[in-house]
Amino acid sequence: MTDQDSPLLCGFVGKHQSLVDKHFVDEMDDHTGLLKVHLMLEQILRDFCTRAVPNPDHLQDARLSFKQIALLARSLDPNQSDVAPLWSAVNDLNAMRNAMAHELEPSESKFTKLQRTIIAAVDTHNGSSGEHDLGAALGYLCGMLSVHLHHGLDQRSQEGADPVE
């Protein structure tokens, strides 16, 4: 961050970094990490959508599902093709979370397949080759989407579509 960054954009990233610092600890199992990343990512997407639309008051009481808010954020993302693999990973993360939340005994093969597709999406985006475990891939996903959406807000601001504070 530089002194030239707007307070709005610094607030967007700063808020999310403080949440990461508060809620993510080194010793966390994959299931807890997955649930926390899902919640963190949902907050990032909601914050982005609220700042990216001209009349955010209409979103405040909307009870949009994770999938709906992810689709809205993707539609508002001016550079969504730059992170297409990560948007796919967002969908897979949601499927993993839903399997954990709605199935007493989720299919291990389905869970493993989703885990592999998330890791592969991260590897595709950053040009690596299978060096991540799920925790590292989820951290990358969350961080990169936060930064990417931050830059999307910056771009919208520069183009005259001022995000709402």
Results as ranks from 00 to 15, higher is better:
1 M>P: 07
135 G>A: 09
68 Q>D: 12
109 S>K: 15
124 T>H: 11
68 Q>M: 14
96 M>I: 09
71 L>G: 01
65 S>G: 07
157 S>C: 02
10 C>I: 09
87 W>S: 03
40 M>S: 09
5 D>V: 03
127 G>E: 08
142 C>R: 08
70 A>K: 02
83 V>K: 01
126 N>R: 14
113 K>H: 13
44 I>C: 05
79 N>I: 00
4 Q>L: 05
100 M>H: 12
43 Q>E: 10
105 E>D: 12
98 N>H: 14
115 Q>F: 07
90 V>C: 08
67 K>A: 15
109 S>M: 15
42 E>M: 03
106 P>R: 09
62 A>F: 08
11 G>W: 01
87 W>V: 01
10 C>N: 06
9 L>F: 02
23 H>C: 11
110 K>I: 10
30 D>L: 05
132 H>F: 07
42 E>D: 10
34 L>Q: 03
93 L>W: 03
1 M>Q: 06
143 G>C: 05
132 H>Y: 10
37 V>S: 05
120 A>F: 09
73 A>C: 06
112 T>R: 15
87 W>K: 03
141 L>A: 09
144 M>R: 14
81 S>N: 03
103 E>C: 06
129 S>A: 08
47 D>S: 11
23 H>L: 14
63 R>P: 02
22 K>G: 00
72 L>K: 01
40 M>C: 03
129 S>C: 02
151 H>T: 09
128 S>P: 06
150 H>M: 00
121 A>E: 07
112 T>W: 10
93 L>M: 09
29 D>P: 12
115 Q>A: 13
144 M>Y: 08
6 S>Y: 00
56 P>F: 04
51 R>L: 14
106 P>E: 12
36 K>C: 08
93 L>Y: 05
94 N>Q: 14
115 Q>C: 15
67 K>L: 09
74 R>P: 01
125 H>C: 11
101 A>F: 13
39 L>C: 07
13 V>Y: 01
7 P>R: 04
18 S>I: 04
136 A>Q: 07
81 S>M: 04
3 D>F: 05
81 S>Y: 00
3 D>C: 01
121 A>H: 07
115 Q>N: 15
96 M>H: 06
38 H>A: 04
52 A>E: 04
18 S>T: 05
